[in-house]
């Protein structure tokens, strides 16, 4: 069956059955929510997902790092590249360069986001019994992101160069993905940022959409 005949079929189905207002809303709402979630995914690309503030006496304003879906930057003040600065400090404890972290993930991030959005769009317009599954990756994305981040932080924290200058002062550690930690003279505060809040909102929308669809299908079958 081609997409054309399919949509004609659904249109005629809608016309013939003439469901109530609420039923109509419930039928279309998941698609609207999926599309909205897809838009939010795109919007999130320009926003930081996660942030880390490092505070130490010799950096009175603190050092701020922001992680985007495919990128790492410092704060908005262009005078100091915080990522480079943190990287420079990390060599004292034997940590690998931050630019080495999640290289694969960062390189495929944008295509992956586009793919997830396309899958959402397909799930929105192609209302088959199983197509809600296409929305699942996007729904899980915020958690996948944090899990991957936690993996890399543990990986980097655990794999310190044993010959690094401060190796006797700073033992391998697992930095917290959220909340406060301490590394040497630095106090760290990690938090999720705007981008992550945007995609978690998307996840909530998808969840609602999926539930409506799945429950609707179950009821229709029942």
């Amino acid at each position: 069956m081609t997409a054309n005949t399919m949509s004609k079929a659904s249109v005629s189905a809608v016309e013939s059955s003439r469901p109530s207002g609420l039923a109509r809303l419930l039928r279309w709402l998941p698609s609207v929510l999926f599309i909205l979630a897809g838009v939010l995914l795109f919007v999130s690309i320009n926003q930081p997902y996660w942030g880390l503030v490092l505070q130490a006496p010799q950096y009175p304003g603190g050092l701020q790092m922001r992680v985007f879906v495919n990128n790492m930057t410092g704060d908005d003040d262009p005078r100091l590249d915080e990522v480079r600065e943190i990287d420079g400090l990390n060599h004292y404890i034997g940590m690998k360069s931050l630019y080495e972290a999640a290289k694969l993930e960062r390189s495929i991030a944008i295509p992956a986001v586009i793919l997830m959005a396309v899958m959402l769009a397909v799930a929105a317009v192609w209302r088959r019994r199983w197509t809600w599954l296409l929305a699942v990756p996007a729904m899980l994305f915020p958690f996948i992101f944090l899990a991957d981040l936690a993996y890399w932080m543990a990986n980097f924290g655990q794999n310190l160069d044993p010959y690094a200058p401060l190796s006797s002062s700073i033992q391998p550690f697992v930095p917290p993905v959220l909340g406060e930690g301490v590394i040497g003279q630095f106090k760290t505060v990690a938090y999720v940022d705007t981008g992550w809040y945007i995609i978690i909102t998307g996840s909530a929308l998808i969840l609602v959409g999926v539930l409506i669809r799945v429950v609707g299908m179950v009821r229709a079958r029942g």
Partner: peptide, 8 residues
């Protein structure tokens, strides 16, 4: 060249 960007 001092390639540092940190103040001081």
């Amino acid at each position: 060249t001092n390639v540092e960007r940190a103040r001081d």
